[in-house]
Design a protein around this nucleic acid. Structure first.
Lengths: 211, 211
DNA sequence: CTAATTCTTTGTTGATCGATAAAGAATAAA
DNA sequence: TTTATTCTTTATCGATCAACAAAGAATTAG
C-alpha cells in the first residue's frame, strides 16, 4: 500500500465534474472540457475515477446527496403529505434557479439525447426519475391510509401529476423562466392536493377518483 | 438551370431524418446514423440539405407542422379555452406515446444536453418552448377577457402551469410511463382550470389570484 | 538503504466526428 | 450537338472523441 500521495483534492474535483455535467450533460461534456474544468490531465482523471462514465455516475450521486435531494429531504422532514409535496416542489425550484449555478435538474437534463452507445447512461437516469415518481405516489398512498387525504383519492394519478410537474419545472428553469413565475405555478398546482384533503366536503364531487 | 434530377425523395428523406433526430436528438444522431437512416451517401445529404444543423432545423419544422402542432391545432379548433387546453394536453400525450414511434416531444428532448459548440441549436429549441408557453398564456388571457374565466384569474400563472405540465409529460413519456397514466394526471390537472371558470362561485375563495 | 506502490507527466492511440473535393453521370437550354 | 447545370459516387479531410502506455517522481514498508 501507500505510494505517492494524490496532489489534488478528489472531492473538489468531483464537485467540478458535477457542475460541468450538470451544465452540459454527459455527452455535451468532453474529456477536454473535464480536463480544463478540473485542472488536471486526463490520465489523472482516469486514475482517480476510472472512466468518464464512472465519473458521471459518481457526480450524479453527489448531486442527489445534496442539491438534488429535495424529495428525500421533504419526505423525511415534513409530517404531512401536503407540506412535503409543496416543500419538495419549492426546494426544487430554488435548486433549479440558483444564480450563478447550473440551471434545472441534473437528473432530468444531463442525458436525454444520447447516442446509442450511451443508452445505459440514459436509461440509468430514467430509472432514477421513475423511482422518484414512485416515492411520491407512495407518500400520497400513505397520506390516504393516514386519513390526511380522502379515501377515494387516486394517489397514483396525483403522484404522477406532481412528478410530471416537477420534471417540467426543470425544463422551464433551463429555459430561463424566472423563479417567481415557477413559484406562482406551484401555488396553482397545490390546489389539486388541497382539494383532496379530508374535511373539505364541498370539493368531493369534483375531485373523485376516476372509475 | 435544370441539371441532373434528384434520385431520392427529399420529403421522405426529411421524414426519416425527423424520426432519427426525434429518437436520439441532435448530437445523439451522427452523420453516419443519418446515412444509414436515409439510405443515401453523406455528400447527397449535404447537397440536399446544406448541413447537419440545417437538416435538423428543417426536421423540427416538419415535426411542428404535423405531430408537434397540437397546441396550434387545439387553439384553432376549439372555441373555449377549457376545451383547447385539454385537447392540447391529450393530443400531446397521444403524440408522445404513439406505439412504434419516437416517444416524447422532439422540441423538449432533442437538444437539452448539447456541447458548447451547438448552443445555438439548443437555444433555438428553448425559444420554441418559450413561444409555446406564451401562446398558452395568451389564450388564457383571452378567456379572461371573454368572460370564460373569472376576472381575477392569474392567467400568466395558469399558462405557465400548463406549459410546465406539458413539458413534464414529454419527460414522463420518454421514461415509458403508459399513456393511460398520463391521461389520468391530465384529468387531475384540468381541475385547476375548472375552478377558474365563471359560474362556479363556491370555488372563488380558494383559487383567487395571488396578491 | 532497497523495494514496492501509487501518482504525475507526456505523448499518443485508433475511432469517430461533421464536412467536402474531385470526377463521373444525367438532365435541360441553346 | 454543345454547354451549363445539378446530382451521384468515391475517397478522404483535419479535428476531436474517449482512453491509455510508458516513464519519471514521490511516498511507505521492510
Amino acid at each position: 500500500m501507500a505510494g505517492r500521495p494524490r496532489e489534488f483534492d478528489r472531492d473538489k474535483a468531483l464537485e467540478k465534474a458535477r457542475d460541468a455535467f450538470w451544465t452540459r450533460g454527459y455527452e455535451g461534456t468532453s474529456m477536454a472540457d473535464l480536463v480544463s474544468a478540473l485542472g488536471i490531465a486526463s490520465a489523472r482523471i482516469y486514475a482517480a475515477f476510472g472512466s468518464k462514465e464512472d465519473l458521471f455516475r459518481e457526480a450524479v450521486g453527489l448531486y442527489e446527496a445534496n442539491e438534488g435531494g429535495f424529495a428525500t429531504r421533504a419526505f423525511a422532514g415534513e409530517t404531512t403529505a401536503r407540506r412535503a409535496i409543496e416543500r419538495m416542489l419549492r426546494e426544487a425550484v430554488e435548486t433549479y434557479t440558483q444564480p450563478g449555478r447550473p440551471q434545472g435538474c441534473m437528473v432530468v437534463s444531463a442525458a436525454t439525447n444520447c447516442a446509442i452507445e450511451n443508452d445505459r447512461v440514459q436509461e440509468w437516469l430514467a430509472e432514477h426519475r421513475r423511482t422518484r415518481t414512485l416515492s411520491i405516489v407512495e407518500r400520497l398512498n400513505e397520506a390516504v391510509r393516514d386519513g390526511e387525504l380522502r379515501p377515494d383519492t387516486n394517489a397514483a394519478a396525483l403522484g404522477d401529476y406532481y412528478a410530471t410537474l416537477m420534471h417540467g419545472l426543470s425544463v422551464q428553469a433551463r429555459d430561463g423562466v424566472p423563479k417567481k413565475r415557477l413559484h406562482d405555478l406551484i401555488t396553482v398546482a397545490m390546489q389539486a392536493l388541497d382539494a383532496r384533503l379530508a374535511g373539505v366536503p364541498e370539493f368531493q364531487h369534483h375531485f373523485a377518483k376516476q372509475p
